[in-house]
């Protein structure tokens, strides 16, 4: 039981995927124009993450080591397709506003990263809790950024007017550039407070895919990181 609580805390605080690991930046920037979208994307990713962690953990002794990456990709892609069907059926409005970013959950670093780093080595129960923790951490990250952007850009939070009438919405914040500015502000605050994070450990930026991320210990094999160093 203790281990499960530890996994939850790890996902939400210690290794928070958005603020500490800086993984899954594409959806983080793309769908956070409103808090509701951020929350929806976070929960969708959580659902996929929990299921994929559970299935990969169950199959960890069956999947041969050499083909594990393609196997994981197939599992995750199938789950994403199922989740997409569910959204189309029950939450068509959310499905429409998230659009292409739902199928793109397949290439979200967090999911393959957790599969490789945790679920493939641990039992089902703790993998599920790892997925829940990471998913909640990601959801909190997206919702917070969404709240910031919606508040500054439209004066609302979750579609409810919050700001006084005199407040003139700064609409740039709900447009594309606002995503970069809000994230820049948040990482700068993180740097200022000297919090542990991917942005202030030198050279730890994700360089193209999770495989070469030094911060997440997911990855195909060492070959790629060697390649990458040669390229620099």
């Amino acid at each position: 039981m203790n281990k499960c609580v530890e996994r939850l805390k790890n996902g939400i605080i210690t290794e928070n995927p958005t603020f500490v690991m800086m993984l899954g930046m594409c959806p983080t920037l793309a769908v956070t124009a409103s808090a509701g979208n951020g929350l929806g994307m976070g929960l969708t990713t959580t659902a996929v993450l929990v299921l994929s962690n559970a299935i990969i953990s169950l199959l960890r002794k069956i999947i041969p080591d050499k083909v594990r990456m393609p196997a994981y990709i197939v599992i995750v892609a199938s789950l994403v397709t199922i989740v997409q069907f569910m959204l189309q059926a029950y939450l068509p409005a959310l499905n429409k506003s998230l659009g292409i970013y739902i199928p793109l959950i397949v290439v979200n670093c967090i999911i393959l990263g957790r599969a490789e780093a945790y679920a493939s080595k641990n039992d089902v129960v703790s993998s599920v809790f790892d997925g829940i923790g990471m998913g909640i951490g990601f959801t909190i990250g997206l919702t917070l950024i969404g709240i910031f952007r919606e508040l500054l850009g439209a004066g609302k939070v979750f579609g409810v007017d919050i700001m006084p009438k005199a407040f003139e919405p700064i609409s740039i914040f709900v447009m594309a550039p606002g995503a970069f500015f809000v994230l820049a502000g948040l990482t700068a605050v993180q740097n200022r407070l000297k919090l542990k994070g991917a942005s202030n450990t030198s050279d730890a930026e994700c360089s193209g895919n999770c495989a070469s991320c030094k911060i997440s210990d997911c990855g195909y094999d060492k070959k790629e990181s060697v390649n990458e160093e040669k390229g620099e």
Partner: peptide, 22 residues
Amino acid sequence: PQSFKGTPIVLITAGLMAIAFI
């Protein structure tokens, strides 16, 4: 500024570029 070194300044740059591309 010290706190903006690294990722934050890159993100700010990206934001300004995004404004230009609008």
